[in-house]
């Protein structure tokens, strides 16, 4: 059985935010909603200091707390591990948003799809893309499952100029992601939360 997952190589990521932009372009998320984000911070003290980047997205956890607390069944996990939301079932209670330790659930505020980025003057692009979303519901990264089902990679992976994002089947020992995890030291975010994320990070260089 396939288990989709992602490996993000922090030795390679240059913090260009292309993933965030590609996600916006592909999914057309409403204002202030980013499924894919890049955290930036510094480590060290001048002159031995440097910028660090931590790209984040939904971890598509093996033990997703967002699915557990959903009262309607709108939040669900596919057999291949992708966690998604059925927009027509979600009542907008935001329990899932509260339960996610990574803040990867996003509430579409009522009125936000009519307002768009230009205060009500929706672009053609917005008119097409916002059709997918429902106001008053919670939306999230679904690993671009429509693309994945067609044999394509998620948009953030496809666009990454540094090839820092690698997508694949964690259950297949021959997949690129499995090989990378075998050959490199990796970690997941907030392992103590018990969520078992399927997004792994290859440790940044400490030199």
């Amino acid at each position: 059985m396939t288990r989709w997952g992602m490996v993000i190589d922090l030795q390679t990521c240059v913090g260009c935010h292309s993933c965030s932009a590609a996600c916006k372009a592909t999914n057309g998320t409403p204002p202030d909603i980013f499924f894919s984000r890049v955290h930036e911070f510094e480590s060290g003290v001048y002159p031995k200091a440097r910028r660090e980047f931590l790209p984040v997205l939904c971890n598509h956890c093996q033990n997703p707390p967002c699915v557990e607390v959903c009262p309607t069944g709108a939040s669900y996990q596919r057999e291949d591990g992708i966690v998604a939301v059925k927009a027509d079932v979600c009542i907008g209670c935001r329990s899932c948003a509260l339960a996610c330790p990574y803040d990867h659930r996003h509430y579409v505020e009522p009125g936000s799809l009519k307002k768009g980025y230009f205060d009500g003057d929706l672009t053609l692009y917005e008119l097409v893309k916002y059709d997918r979303w429902t106001e008053g519901t919670v939306i999230k990264c679904d690993f671009c499952m429509d693309r994945v089902d067609e044999g394509l990679k998620p948009a953030c992976v496809e666009t990454c100029p540094a090839e820092a994002r690698i997508f694949g089947d964690l259950a297949d020992p021959k997949s690129d992601v499995s090989k990378l995890l075998r050959e490199n030291e990796s970690f997941t975010l907030l392992p103590e939360a018990g969520t078992k994320p399927c997004v792994y990070y290859i440790k940044p260089s400490t030199e």
């Binding site: 557990e68 009262p71 709108a74 009542i91 907008g92 209670c93 106001e135 008053g136 519901t137 919670v138």
Partner: peptide, 25 residues
Amino acid sequence: VHLGNPQRSWRAVRRVGNAWVSRGT
């Protein structure tokens, strides 16, 4: 009023076995 889609609020009791929102509702 808190719900984004109150017209679907009846669905909130669908997962009594798992979710406290369902149990509470």
